[in-house]
Structures are given as C-alpha cells and as structure tokens.
C-alpha cells in the first residue's frame, strides 16, 4: 500500500477509534464519574450514579440556548468545539499500544494540543463579555502562565535526558531517576491544568459563579463538559504512558498495554480526586506563588541535571 495512505489511515484510526474518540469519550464520562464518586465517598456521601455524566451530557444537548447573533456569537459558539477537537487530538497522539506509529516531534504537538483547551477557556470567558467570565479568564491566564513553566520544564527535562522528542521512543526507554522526578512535577501541575481543588480558581463556584462558562448553556455547555473530560483522559494518559511501559516490562508482558494504560489512568484520577476532596481552594496569589517559588526550583534542578547528563554522555 502507498505509505502516505497507510500513514493517513493509521492516524485516522488513532484519532477516531483507539485511543481517540470512540475510546476517549466514554472514558471521559467514566473519569468524570470516578472523580465525582471519589469526592462523594470522601465526604461520606453516596455520590452520583454510574451513568450520571452521560445523562448530564444528553440533557444539556436537549436544552435551548440563548440567541447569539453576529460574528461574536459565532466565535463564542466555536470555542468549545475547538477545545473538544484539540483535547481529542491530544488523546489520539498518546502511544498506548506498542508500535502504534507516531513521528519525530509528536511530543511538541501533544503539548500544544494539551494547551489549546485552556487558551479556548480564556478566549471564551473574554468573548462572553460577562464580568464573571472575564475574572475567570484572567485567573486562568495567570494560573496557566505559572504551572506551564513547571509542566514544560518537567517534560523537556525528560525528553532531553532521553535524547528524543518522539513519544513512543520516550515511553520505551529505560527508567531513570530523572523520569520519575519529571512525573512527580507533572502530577503537581495536573490539579491546576484540570481546574480541581486546590487550584479550582477559574471556575470557582461560590465566588464567580462558573467563571468563563457562566454565559454558556445547553449544547455549548455539553461540549465544555466533554472537553473537560477529554482533558482528564489526555492529562492522566500522558502520566500513564510515561509510567506504563515500566510496569508492563516488570510484569513481563506488553500485550496488556491497553489495560495497564487504563488502570494507571484511573489510579491517577483517584489520586487527584482524593487531593481535591481533601483540600480547599487557595487564593490566586498563593497559587501563583506556589508554582513560581516552590516548584520552579525543582523543575530547574531537573532540567539542569538532564542537560548535565546529556553533555557528560
């Protein structure tokens, strides 16, 4: 077969089937349920039923939306769709199955796609012209500037120590202390990236209503919920792909790669949910200070030692 055509088919299959939309959308609902249920159990509640995120999604699809005339309304409707598309693309890039393809530099594309939903949220808040949306967007922007430095430095330090920007090679290379340091740094950034406690500032209920989503209703809100769920899948999946090959090798099998990926993702979701239930929201200045003062030192240490390792070898 024509190599270009076969590459295209592989890419489409990864985007649409596994680990793309066909897998990622139910997984997104499942992860949202796991998060809500875990928080409920921590608070000694029964919690939502298993199908709850799915029912919420269907119900929102059936609601009416306020009229949004003109180009501004069109742009406002476009943001949630862009967010869903980029989050689904990020999930599709994850090297879950061994030898599933990929290309040199797909790590950079993955980072860009992971960042797009947050940029969409910022833009959506400002384009909705709601005062609460604008406050939420400003907070999201401040938070994004803070945690992304640590997040990117952690990933770049892993990539630099392993001499590659290709996800599949990165996942397959042997474990090192630097990689585990990087994984911990990514885990510290995830609560801010997923807007959960203690960094649930952009969509802080009781303070600014729903932040950037205040003006969204019906199917648009359903798309935001879906984008949020897909972000969960992509972010926890990134951690899982960095950890999974080692678990798989330790168990002496690579056949169970998909299952191990899902199990590790759920474990990360549980960890983050327990953290969210156990903590209260931190103020915006404290959050920014936390990332710039406390964690940046470790990220700088990680990248400098990665460069040191690289030049010594």
């Amino acid at each position: 077969m024509n190599p270009v055509l076969s590459n295209l088919i592989t890419a489409l299959a990864r985007f649409l089937i596994f680990p793309g939309l066909l897998f990622a959308v139910p997984a997104a609902w499942f992860f949202l349920w796991v998060e809500r249920k875990a928080v409920a159990l921590m608070q000694e509640r029964v919690g939502p039923p298993f199908m709850q995120p799915f029912w919420d999604f269907v119900k929102l699809l059936g609601k009416s939306t306020p009229p949004r005339p003109g180009i501004a309304g069109f742009i406002m409707r476009a943001w949630p769709l862009i967010a869903v598309g980029s989050a689904a693309g990020a999930v599709g890039l994850l090297p879950v199955l061994p030898a599933s393809g990929g290309f040199e530099g797909d790590l950079i594309l993955l980072l860009a796609l992971l960042e797009l939903p947050s940029i969409c949220i910022i833009a959506a808040g400002f384009s909705s012209r709601s005062i609460f949306g604008e406050i939420g967007s400003a907070r999201e922007a401040a938070l994004s500037v803070s945690y992304n430095i640590v997040f990117l430095l952690a990933i770049v330090s892993i990539a630099a120590s392993q001499h590659t920007f290709r996800l599949e090679d990165l996942a397959a290379l042997p474990s090192s202390p630097l990689r585990w340091l990087g994984v911990v740094a990514i885990l510290i950034c995830l609560p801010a990236k997923l807007h959960i406690n203690p960094f649930s500032l952009p969509n802080a209920e009781q303070e600014i209503y729903s932040g950037p989503m205040t003006e969204y209703a019906g199917p648009e809100l359903a798309m935001w919920e879906l984008a949020h769920g897909l972000e969960w899948v992509a972010a926890t999946g990134l951690v899982a792909t960095l950890v999974a090959p080692h678990v798989a090798l330790a168990w002496g099998t690579t056949l169970l790669a998909g299952g191990i990926f899902v199990a590790l993702s759920v474990a990360v979701v549980l960890l983050l949910s327990v953290l969210a239930a156990a903590t209260a929201r931190v103020a915006i200045d404290s959050s920014v200070r936390f990332y710039w003062q406390c964690t940046l030192i470790f990220a700088a240490l990680a990248i400098s030692s990665a460069l040191f390792v690289r030049f010594r070898s």
């Binding site: 029964v46 919420d56 306020p66 009781q206 729903s210 969204y216 809100l221």
Partner: peptide, 21 residues
C-alpha cells in the same frame, strides 16, 4: 449535604442560571 445527599439522584447546585433546569 452528606446526610440527604441529593447528588445520588443527579441533583447539582449550579452557579449560573444559564446552566440550570
């Protein structure tokens, strides 16, 4: 709150009237 826990019936308190039923 935990004692009656309306969330087990899918009830959520929303911050914005746009999100509510």
């Amino acid at each position: 709150a935990p004692r009656y826990d309306a969330e087990q019936l899918g009830v959520l308190l929303q911050g914005s009237p746009r999100h509510a039923d």
